[in-house]
């Protein structure tokens, strides 16, 4: 189909063509327009939990990742009000977990961190929860550091939908929400996770880490050292997108 034949909506005053079935964020990224996001992953059906991609559609707030694109929709995204909201949400996530970037191997490649940079977050601002979340180092090759979990469910979905294993699940309620693994012992070593699993690749933060890697890439050459997440996300966005899984 020719782009001009496609229906379109307005994003911050610019026309965004879309194929029916796409959500606002999918259409926007495909068309080369960035909307800040965290739990959305182009290969998975949108989850809509982090709410960082909240936009206003015809004046009503909605998560751009789960909002179906509709012809004639007027979407605001890059406004002071919405960016303030996103900053608050990112601050809430930083205050919720134990995010000590200097000691995290994912630093420089972490989406939460990169989003903080892009939004100009200088502090969590709120009082930190400092939760007690013991790490799981039982597996010989994989470390789980739950302190950094943001509950995006990507590992859960990747393990279920791609790896066919169901190694992970989210449980608990409210601020007690947490990630668990599929073993009576509760230990990752007693699951059938493998180094080749998709679940290892999708974590946007530093929860699922390969052991024996460490700080492999020097500071300055890591993913978000080189380019801000806004530029990187557009590079990663498939130009014509079909969700692959789910």
């Amino acid at each position: 189909m020719n782009e001009s034949d496609l229906p379109s909506f307005l994003l911050d005053g610019e026309e965004i063509p879309f194929t029916p079935g796409q959500t606002v964020i999918q259409a926007a990224l495909t068309a080369g327009h960035y909307i800040p996001h965290l739990c959305y992953h182009p290969e998975f059906v949108p989850h809509g939990s982090c709410k960082v991609c909240t936009v206003k559609a015809n004046g009503r707030p909605a998560a751009a990742c789960t909002l179906p694109a509709q012809a004639g929709l007027a979407v605001e995204s890059d406004t002071d009000e919405l960016n303030d909201l996103r900053r608050t949400l990112v601050q809430m996530l930083f205050a919720e977990g134990n995010h000590f970037c200097p000691s995290c191997e994912k630093s420089g490649n972490c989406m939460l961190q990169a989003l903080g940079y892009d939004l100009g977050v200088m502090t969590a601002g709120f009082r930190h929860f400092f939760p007690d979340r013991p790490v799981d180092a039982s597996h010989p090759d994989i470390l789980l550091d739950f302190n950094r979990c943001i509950f995006c469910k990507l590992c859960v979905r990747a393990s279920e939908e791609v790896d066919g294993k169901g190694v992970f699940s989210l449980t608990g309620r409210g601020i007690m929400r947490h990630l668990i693994v599929s073993a009576e012992s509760g230990r990752l070593a007693d699951t059938d996770i493998a180094l080749t699993d998709k679940a290892l690749e999708v974590c946007p933060v530093g929860v699922i880490l390969r052991k024996h890697v460490g700080f492999a890439v020097p500071i300055g050459r890591r993913r978000y050292d080189e380019r801000p997440i806004s530029a990187q996300a557009l590079d990663d966005a498939p130009r014509m997108m079909e969700p692959k899984h789910g």
Partner: peptide
């Protein structure tokens, strides 16, 4: 106590 914990604003916001 009753927040399901799915989304950031409610999970963290109600606890804060």
């Amino acid at each position: 106590h009753e927040s399901c914990g799915f989304c950031t604003p409610c999970r963290v916001g109600t606890a804060m």
